[in-house]
Design a protein around this nucleic acid. Structure first.
Lengths: 187, 187
DNA sequence: TAACTGCACGAACGATCGTACTATTACCCG
DNA sequence: CGGGTAATAGTACGATCGTTCGTGCAGTTA
């Protein structure tokens, strides 16, 4: 019981890193097993199918995201500061490469966006959750008549910075995003 | 010459559609050949390697993008209208699924963003070109002291709408993006 | 000690990947 | 019309994909 659970944890810890760069399709069982020095069949037995491995990887990434971004930002009491803190944590989460391939969800969202199925559904739900947290923080701070609209715009800045930094290999976009966030929040 | 060129065109026309959904890695030569009812080896001979096929596919997608977005918008003379027109064409390009998987460059940019190489370089250059066109239009309209900053924000709205519509399967995000663009342009 | 359970292993499956050859067709030019 | 070249087809390769199966080892329970 205990031994198996620890192995599973190790597998997923490595899986999220690989998937953030190579995608959930590029995450091959053989490659993952080789990296971890375990047998392909032993690893496979933990999940039963590739799709289950992919879903478990998304779950693991979501936990990391929550611990890195949402959790820390929610220590700030409801206020405009909390909204800024959420975005600031998100930008740091991308910039410091909590996942080596940048934002995990941007990577796999683009991969499965055009393909309906359980994986896309899981990603969509997590995206809704994140946007919901931001919108609620905005609503609680009473800083905007349309919290969802502002949440959309703030999230757009963050995602754009993540994408630009990855493609162009520099950090300039994060400064642009920070400036845009501050302007949108009236700072 | 003529016969071969036409075949190449047919191949790339199908390739961009597949790659916009499955990515440039998911674009397999066998699958592509089957779809087009040609032999795998005959198709392969046109490019010599998979990477060359991928680069040619990016080139073909860029031409379509130019014809669908940049070209039409540039008929509007330099002005705030031109800036809005550029963004409006972009949103239509994504919403009407000129590529079945949404924006081709968002898809493959996420795929190769974390992986240096010729493909990422090609994507980065095209991204720079697009942002440059938008920034120049802003500068010519003299609507902002920092055209690059505004171009970043407008592009962010568009990309976010593309991603959201794909993942969530609805068109709401395009209205949010349009609202954000109009607000940013002071309309 | 005997039976059972959880976990990982190696070997092998058929399918598909990108790529390399050779053979065959189809077209252009003299 | 015939010869040469460009374009396509055919076949085969080694590698890797996801998956299945049977087996052995470790630890717990009876």
């Amino acid at each position: 019981m205990i031994r198996g659970e620890q192995t599973r944890r190790n597998i997923l810890a490595r899986a999220v890193d690989i998937a953030s760069v190579e995608g959930l399709e590029g995450l091959s069982i053989g490659r993952l097993a080789t990296d971890l020095d375990v047998s392909k069949s032993g690893l496979f037995a933990h999940f039963g199918s590739k799709e289950e491995l992919q879903l478990a990887t998304i779950e693991a990434a979501a936990r990391i995201f929550y611990a890195e971004v949402i959790g820390p930002a929610l220590v700030t009491p409801p206020s405009p500061d909390r909204v800024y803190h959420l975005l600031d944590r998100w930008l740091a989460y991308s910039r410091t490469r909590v996942f080596p391939g940048g934002c995990f969800f941007a990577r796999v969202g683009a991969e499965f966006g055009g393909r309906p199925g359980r994986i896309r559904d899981a990603i969509a739900e997590l995206d809704c959750t994140w946007l919901g947290v931001v919108a609620q923080a905005i609503a609680q701070a009473r800083m905007e008549s349309d919290p969802d609209q502002l949440a959309f715009e703030l999230n757009a800045y963050a995602r754009a910075a993540n994408a630009a930094s990855l493609v162009h290999g520099d950090d300039n976009a994060y400064e642009r995003a920070d400036r845009a966030v501050r302007a949108a929040l009236g700072r």
